[in-house]
Design a protein around this nucleic acid. Structure first.
Length: 484
RNA sequence: GCUCCCAUCGACUAGGGGUUAGGUCGCCACUCUUUCACAGUGAAAACACGGGUUCGAAUCCCGUUGGGAGCGCCA
């Protein structure tokens, strides 16, 4: 038996990747990288009716964005093409035939209508479990062959023997037991010839030599079916590890109703991939120390399945926001300028030109005040355009009858300096206050209002220095005109 | 309804027979700052309940309650 760690992320292309899926993918990825194993992407596209256009591309680009690069796919199409189950139909058919030949599975010709009424009846009788009644298991070979040759629509079902205890070991939960009479004769091959999840998943996991099946807890109840399949084929079980679920704040399963669930939504909102990864890694796993801030390579180093929690976790946006701030603040000026320019091009300021030096100055003073890079345009809009309106509260509190005269005095002083430095502005302001026989506050507040339109923000000398002498004077003149 | 899984501050979690039950986010206060933040300091805040085992239980066992998932020709 191959001892190499081989894991897979196996999404179905029915939409976007959501946060819970990304965490599953991440844990698989971390586990593979930590153990120098392989991380495989397999697209489970066996449901023709649920296929969504562009979903595969979305999955691939999301994984790429998140930094979860996968190692393996089929040879055709290059090394970075994932596996597609829809391209492996023959393989599943062969395996289903093997099971039929060994009496582990059988053809079933029952119609959906019959199945539905059967289910209704069983519900009415308050039976503990609705399940197929094995009617077609007792068909004679002649009947089966006749039906088959007449081309009657049929499926292949797993033949589950009653009275057995199905036991398996879950890496996270320990030993789990199910009674076989509660397990339905699961459909393996649908009438359209496509396999169901259960068959395709087990066959592929075996053929691809998956050593650890790491997936969401929602799969735990169907694991006995998979165990039965492994047994029927005579295959060794992989290690199962069922991850605890992610919840909405009200502890229901994570869903769109209560906030965003698509990874793309977070990306579009401006969350850094570093913080999203850091955050979801901590949703159900901890190294056991007090470390909270991680980069991917540190996660790989520390990750272990043994320290994954057993209980579900609520997705708390506040902590994500905090991590986003932390990851943002640790970025270099170059990176931040690059990011800011990207946002700039998408913003209403896209036609304006700014030098890297200017943007770095803005970033430096705004960095401690933002959670997202694009917030610079909201909270520091005055670095990109002249204030048009003045914050009402700030006006009431900061603009006095003598503010105009005071600012005129200040203007006089800085006009006299050709290239004022930050210190020059400060000195001018101090002198203004002194000469006007007032406190510094009565210069600072109106000045701040004039240049920024609001009452908060970076240090006033930083602001005026960054926007420069000409614009400062312009804005002072404007506010005097408007407010006096 | 049935089966399975789970249960420590509001949230994420550490601890896993003897701890003042620790950390992080958030919330609050103070310091810094004539602004807003950042930073720093501090505070409030939890072992679901009931039995049992034990000298001793948040920790082990059983039960109750609560929450969740699953019960498709979906994955």
């Amino acid at each position: 038996m191959n001892s190499e760690v081989r894991v897979r992320y196996a999404p179905s292309p029915t939409g976007y990747i959501h946060i819970g899926n990304l965490r599953t993918a991440l844990y698989n990825y971390l586990f593979a990288r930590h153990n120098n194993g392989k991380f495989i992407l397999r697209i489970e596209d066996t449901d023709q009716t649920r296929k969504v256009e562009g979903a595969v591309e979305n999955i691939i680009s999301t994984l790429k964005w998140a930094g979860l690069d996968y190692d393996e796919g089929p040879l055709k199409g290059g090394p970075f093409k994932p596996y597609f189950q829809s391209e492996r139909l023959g393989i599943y058919k062969e395996h289903a035939d093997f099971l039929i030949n060994h009496k582990k599975a059988y053809n079933c010709f029952c119609t959906s209508e019959r199945l539905n009424t059967l289910r209704e009846e069983q519900k009415k009788l308050k039976l503990p479990q609705t399940k197929y009644d094995k009617l077609c298991l007792h068909l004679s070979n002649e009947e089966i062959n006749r039906n088959l040759s007449e081309g009657i629509s049929h499926v292949v079902r797993l033949n589950v023997e009653e009275g057995k205890v199905i036991k398996f070991n879950d890496h996270i939960r320990g030993e789990v037991e199910f009674l076989s009479e509660l397990v339905d004769d699961q459909i393996l091959i649908k009438s359209d010839g496509f396999p169901t999840y259960h068959l395709a998943n087990v066959v592929d996991d075996h053929l691809m030599e998956i050593s650890h099946v790491i997936r969401g807890e929602e799969w735990l109840p169907s694991t006995p079916k998979h165990v039965l399949l492994y047994n029927s084929f005579g295959w060794e079980l992989p290690v199962f590890a069922h991850l605890p679920l992610l919840f909405n704040p009200d502890r229901s399963k994570l869903s769109k109703r209560q906030g965003d669930v698509a990874v793309e939504d977070y990306k579009n909102k401006g969350y850094l991939k570093e913080s999203l990864i850091n955050f979801i890694a901590l949703l159900g796993w901890t190294a056991g120390d007090d470390k909270e801030f991680y980069f991917m390579d540190e996660l790989i180093k520390s990750f272990s399945l043994d320290r994954v929690n057993d209980s579900g976790a609520v997705f708390d946006i506040e902590k994500l926001n905090w991590l986003n701030e932390e990851h943002l603040r640790i970025k270099t000026d170059e990176e931040l300028v690059r990011m800011l320019r990207e946002e700039l091009n998408k913003s209403k300021y896209s036609s304006l030109e700014f030098t890297d030096e200017y943007l770095i100055e803005v970033i430096t003073v705004m960095k401690p005040r933002i959670s997202f890079i694009k917030e610079i345009f909201e909270k520091g809009y005055y670095f990109f355009e002249e204030p048009d309106v003045y914050d009402e509260v700030a006006v009431t509190k900061g603009w006095k009858t003598d503010s105009s005269i005071i600012l005129e005095k200040f203007t006089e002083k800085i006009s006299a300096i050709e290239y004022p430095t930050k210190e020059d502005y400060e000195t001018s302001l101090n002198e203004t206050a002194l000469e006007m026989n007032t406190g510094k506050g009565s210069v600072i507040h109106p000045l701040r209002l004039a240049v920024s339109g609001v009452s908060g923000g970076p240090g006033i000398f930083d602001i005026v220095f960054i926007i420069g002498k000409d614009k400062t004077i312009e804005r002072i003149n404007k506010i005097i005109e408007k407010l006096s």
